[in-house]
Design a protein around this nucleic acid. Sequence first.
DNA 1: TTTTAAACATGAAATATTTAATGTTTTATG
DNA 2: CATAAAACATTAAATATTTCATGTTTAAAA
Lengths: 236, 236
Amino acid sequence: MHSKIQAMTINDPKQEFSWFRRISSQFISDKDFDKLEKTSVKLIFKKGETILKQGGLPTHVVYLEKGIVKFNYENESSKNLILTIVSAPKILGGANLFYKDNNLFSFIAVEDCEVILIDAKVLEEVLVENSRFAMMMFQVASEMFKKSVMNFISLAHKQKEGRIADIILYLAAEVYNDTSFHLSLTRKEIAEFAGCSTENVIMTLSKWQTEKIISVDGKILAIKDIDKLKHISKIG
Amino acid sequence: MHSKIQAMTINDPKQEFSWFRRISSQFISDKDFDKLEKTSVKLIFKKGETILKQGGLPTHVVYLEKGIVKFNYENESSKNLILTIVSAPKILGGANLFYKDNNLFSFIAVEDCEVILIDAKVLEEVLVENSRFAMMMFQVASEMFKKSVMNFISLAHKQKEGRIADIILYLAAEVYNDTSFHLSLTRKEIAEFAGCSTENVIMTLSKWQTEKIISVDGKILAIKDIDKLKHISKIG
DNA sequence: TTTTAAACATGAAATATTTAATGTTTTATG
DNA sequence: CATAAAACATTAAATATTTCATGTTTAAAA
């Protein structure tokens, strides 16, 4: 029963692309949008699954319709680094679109995700024929770039507590849109995002809990004193 | 005498834009290029001068014709962070172009520079009317984005020596195009790039000199054993 | 439902990094 | 050219961070 509904959804792309269609409609014709839809595939990824793999060819651009995704970079010694975390709805791989190199990093589902894979070649054709649409797309990509840069700046010259504070504040403001949220990241993943050890994240969160800056109940994390958290972020 | 030549150069924009003109000519008409030239201003910046200031409005896009520039982020407590360093010829501010927010960081001349400031509005008009040109510009901006990201990745999960090794290798490969070069950065600036203390940079460079991995003679730095340096980069 | 693996947690030892104190050399400036 | 300021350099002490060892709890798999 449930799978039937799902299948229907998959087979009826007209139902999808809602956010993307709305913002695109100002820039491209229905005909061009249909062209994108026809060559797109909708897929569902479970938590932990890889949507797009580091090193692979950028044959598709990802439209994230539902769910949360991490941008994961894995180095030669299999250490992971999370570049950023984003929630739907969003166009991912904006940067990937414009250079033809292999993907710099993987997209991995942090929550169950619904994504639409858009054929990169077809999208490029549409972009070339609709320069204002292209400009909009690049602006979206730039916004994401900007947020990554802010993350990196935090990482680069704050220490542990400032960086973890920045991440909690970022998750609340940009990913979960609430000061209280179901944290889908493990401590290890937060550490990979903050560029520190897992133990450090555990210790810092515990400490903040006793100081009543946050509360942690199972997977629910709530910011109790946002001013203190912002202060920690500021003093680094 | 010398200043006269310089002034001539400034007043004859046709002589400038050489690299940019060459790559642009495949995508836009001479007429459109002239439009860009007419609204552009050529300026000369001395070492240390700010070309474009963090927080300012992105009214211009910078074409760096000659020289070396650092992307500098200054935080509330006046600590600097160098995001990347680039050498001419290059279009800077690609990302700035596409979001209308205030500049995220400053461009500061690390060597004497010749730059052409292109009016952002006029450039946008030309981009909208020449989508292939726009795509090319995106690609250029994305390349720079990619290099920053690689820098940040190094910063995020390597320690001191690996990061400094990465910077020396980057400078040789991407900025000076030689394993031996006149280093225009101070130890303090390398530290701001590597995200560590000045003392650390001094100590590491001294150590590498005694180990014959590099040689430092005044401002001339030469990589003597690139394999060892790459190995340090690899093991982090 | 047992079993296993992963996540969460804590503290101590080992290591890395910064800060501070001090001095020399180089570069910029009156 | 004298003088000040900045850059370069070295060391020890203080601090931050990671690693390791160990144990409990939670979630996933057989």
